[in-house]
Design a protein around this nucleic acid. Sequence first.
DNA 1: CGCGGGTTTGATGATGCTCAAGCCCGGTGG
DNA 2: CCACCGGGCTTGAGCATCATCAAACCCGCG
Lengths: 195, 195
Amino acid sequence: MHEQLIANIRKRVSVSPEELESIKHFFIPKKIRKRQYFLNAGDVTRHTAFVEKGLLRSFSIDDSAHEHVVQFAPEGWWITDMCSFLSGDEAVYNIEALEDSELLLLTKQAMDEMLEQHPKMERFFRLLMQNSIIALQRRIVGTLSLSAEEKYKRMMHLYPDILQRAPQQHIASFLGITPETLSRVRKQVSIGKQG
Amino acid sequence: MHEQLIANIRKRVSVSPEELESIKHFFIPKKIRKRQYFLNAGDVTRHTAFVEKGLLRSFSIDDSAHEHVVQFAPEGWWITDMCSFLSGDEAVYNIEALEDSELLLLTKQAMDEMLEQHPKMERFFRLLMQNSIIALQRRIVGTLSLSAEEKYKRMMHLYPDILQRAPQQHIASFLGITPETLSRVRKQVSIGKQG
DNA sequence: CGCGGGTTTGATGATGCTCAAGCCCGGTGG
DNA sequence: CCACCGGGCTTGAGCATCATCAAACCCGCG
């Protein structure tokens, strides 16, 4: 059940099979069912999660009780409230499974030990973070510069599978528009395709 | 001229004075004057820059020729087009000095060598990236959930000095609003304070 | 079969954008 | 030293986009 994780690591750093075997043991497998929460805002999380299978989302809830999706995490992605995980602060994000999912969990302690024993993994996580930053910066620019329809089309292009798998209300929240607007945009786009 | 850099490293990892001395030599000092461009979109950048002194901004230009500020980088911050720096792609961001500034530049090659010789720096950069991610995620949520006025007030709280130092048009661009709206919001907020 | 959540559709309205003009201030040249 | 540019900030009027509120619809599930 570590296939995705191993592929994910190998993609970025070269590690021997023995090392991989050792690395695997720092992770705790966990299954989580659709609709279950992996993390509630206000709690402190001890874990960062790698998604072997399934789909999760992290989101915050603002003062007007509106949800805002920070991230979708399908297979091969990592998800946590980083601030809570690293610093022991109260989490500001909720994390919910959108499908029955299989996770590989890493406690802070396990992570530190792993980095101690396998310095290569420092590099791995650095590369991982770099990619996240690039994606997050692009998302910000997109949020600032695009219309609702353009945002949707961009998502069709960047994450077509998530568009299929996640409920529209969450897609809308991720894009920063209302479900109503997303519905209208979809209609618009589908008509445009036919005509 | 490496005071900020050294403080920045020491804040995150413990390194001996000798190591620091060695680390310093991977950086190339460079001065850049107000209004000069450190990077033009379309070019490939060989450098990532640490700001010892001064202030820069990175921004993209969209199809409608509108600018969007991705980041401000005052003293103690890093700035580059990460994708271009790491992968040799054409940069999508421009980087401009908003004040006369002093930079410490790192080429990809120098960075790799430094990481090779000083594995601690892998950790340093990982921690740096983690902090960036936390900040970027917060910015996204803010962009999605806040009104123009709330965005401005948040910036007053988070980066009061940048609010002082950067022209309003760039602040507006950073917040995702027009200069006109920012002007009105400022008026609004200042009146609110008096009354 | 009927409930209920999610999506769609419609009508209305607010926030913030666009376009345009005026103002303020710092820099430049006479 | 002062007059004059010119860029950036401000102010105003009209408008577009998207949010809100409300109702109907659709479909899976109990």
